[in-house]
Amino acid sequence: MRAFAALLRKEVFSLFVSPYIYLLLGTWFLLNGLFFSFILGYPAVEQDLTLFPQFLFGSGLLVWLLLPAFPPLLTLKLFAEEQRTGTLEPLLSAPIRDVAIVAAKYCAAWLFFFTFWIGVLLLFLLLEFHQAPLDWARVGGGFLGAISASSLFLATGLWASSWGGNLILAAGGGACINFLLLFLPVLFENSPGRVGALAKSLHIPNMLDRAFAVGLFDSYALLFFPIMTLLFLWLTWVRLVSRRWVP
């Protein structure tokens, strides 16, 4: 546990002192600010502000473009950079369990990505400051859904980062998996039979748009993201420890 805490501190520190990460954060805030201003000027939202969380968290570009693309950019350095610079082997041979390494790197990325969402929360506080009558259950639901989805996408990014020392492969692979997770269910949701049913049960935008962002908390959606996150963390761990399985 002490090793985990030390590694977590180190990873968080390395993220928080990286100018590259702040450039990423600034870009995220800029794009979200643009979407925010655009959606706020949308006539339907002017008529009914309750639609705002759905437009931002449910069906907007935040979900379809930023959410899948940014987490892998944050996680790409976590394993791929270590492999590229040759510091992964010493880390793996250090007296710390592999699961703690994966958990520490994931938690560091998650903690830092939380600051990404704090910036978006500031936009809602800005609305509140201007006396906008917000339905906070919907806003809170939207945030919970978006944070859950970003937790999953960070895990896929971490897995992609563990593939090798190529940073482009790590970022591109992670983003690719995230876009597949988003788009594949959409492509097959109207298919007949089990394919359609499976696509509907894996449909992330629907979970965000028709549950979280309307203030509706569904036990399945609440469990879906942690379970999928654990799957990708498991795959990362498997990739990491597989080096030791063969003499």
Partner: peptide, 19 residues
């Protein structure tokens, strides 16, 4: 298996916290 179990209507709970 876990997702299939939790997706069953009988294992699913929905809380409507909207206004």
């Amino acid at each position: 298996l876990l997702l299939a179990f939790f997706a069953q209507p009988s294992h699913r709970v929905r809380w409507d916290l909207s206004n």
